[in-house]
């Protein structure tokens, strides 16, 4: 039976593969650009990427090591972060030791109606437990991301801007915050990111929301439980 199966399986495999064309396949710019940072040699990742995403994203480059060579545009005094601005990328680099304290579970008090935890994707936590990303979605297929993590050496938060996107400096409960509004709200998400020095946590909320809605959600974030 096994020999028959093996021979027949090879025949099926060949038929299946032969049915697929080999010629180059056109893709959207978003596909190529959004995957390109993932394909970069991480030895080159010690230099912040200037690749541009079609959709702006906030990423925690947790595994990209140290960024000690970076030339910060803004260094926040004794704070545990500094900001570097390069063309269409704004990167907050974090410093200091990673705390042993477990990351609390935060929740959004002013949670938008119609959203629920994405059943297709579990909450993502970094291996060290210093970062957590929660995805919600609604019945229209729109996603809401709530990400937060401890600030520490080797971690960074980057926002990639598209042409026409706007950045607004603001505060969230007295913490420095930035709102990034997409120029294409029908297809891209907007973002609010803020840093709580007191809690040593960098937060972001990303979704199809207005600046006012993002601020309202950010200001309502609370500790749901401590692990």
């Amino acid at each position: 039976m096994r020999d028959i199966l093996c021979a027949a399986a090879l025949e099926v495999r060949d038929a299946m593969l032969a049915s697929l064309p080999e010629e180059p396949c056109a893709v959207s710019s978003g596909f190529e650009e959004s995957l390109s940072p993932l394909l970069a040699d991480l030895s080159a990742a010690h230099r912040p990427s200037l690749r541009k995403f079609v959709e702006k994203v906030a990423i925690l480059l947790l595994l990209l090591g140290c960024f000690s060579f970076a030339s910060p545009a803004v260094r926040a005094g004794m704070h545990r972060w500094y900001l570097e601005v390069r063309e269409d990328v704004r990167i907050h680099y974090f410093t200091g030791d990673l705390t042993d304290d477990p990351l609390p579970h935060y929740a959004i008090g002013a949670f938008p109606e119609g959203y629920y935890l994405s059943p297709e994707r579990e909450t993502v936590e970094s291996a060290s437990g210093s970062f957590r990303s929660i995805r919600y979605e609604n019945d229209e297929g729109k996603y809401l991301y709530f990400d937060y993590g401890y600030m520490h050496q080797g971690a960074a938060s980057a926002v990639y801007l598209d042409e026409g996107d706007t950045m607004i400096e603001t505060t969230v409960n007295g913490c420095p915050a930035e709102i990034y509004l997409t120029a294409t709200p029908e297809t891209s998400r907007s973002l609010i990111t803020w840093i709580s020095e007191e809690e040593n946590v960098d937060f972001s909320i990303m979704g199809h929301f207005s600046a006012e809605e993002l601020v309202e959600m950010a200001e309502s974030v609370y500790i749901e439980k401590k692990r």
Partner: peptide
């Protein structure tokens, strides 16, 4: 569109340069 957190997963998934 690759999602942000999937990038993180990817980076965690392939820590080895080879």
């Amino acid at each position: 569109m690759a999602e942000v957190t999937e990038m993180l997963i990817y980076l965690q998934a392939i820590p080895d340069p080879p």
